[in-house]
Amino acid sequence: MTRADWVIVISAVALLPFLYALYWGNAAPGDRVLVLVNGKQVLAASLATDTEFTVDGPLGTSHIKVHGGQVRFTDSPCANKLCVHTGWLQHGGEFAACLPNRVSLVVSGLNNRYDTINF
């Protein structure tokens, strides 16, 4: 093994963790939900783990639930509850929004079946 060999082998091996971090990092199997307040992302959660959390907007607290690979608004401090009526989101590209409270959910994933959703 020459010095050049060592350099090549070591840098090749060193490249691998970097690749895993780049393409596997924070992309748990399946999709994620991005939570935005005023169009700015405040948190991202994997849809693989069932959980419930709350996000504060200008009007108050919106409640969000992740269950069985889907996500939805369960409550929001708005009058018409359109966001809650939107129901479960599952596919990459689907989104729901509580406009009065400026909170929105977008499903995103490496494996988006759709680029966007029409409704």
Partner: peptide
């Protein structure tokens, strides 16, 4: 809010639009 216009394509494939 659900209504869209798409131009071009997604790399080597067309854009895929899901209809809810």
């Amino acid at each position: 809010g659900g209504d869209l216009r798409a131009i071009g394509r997604h790399g080597g494939r067309p854009w895929r639009i899901g209809i809810r």
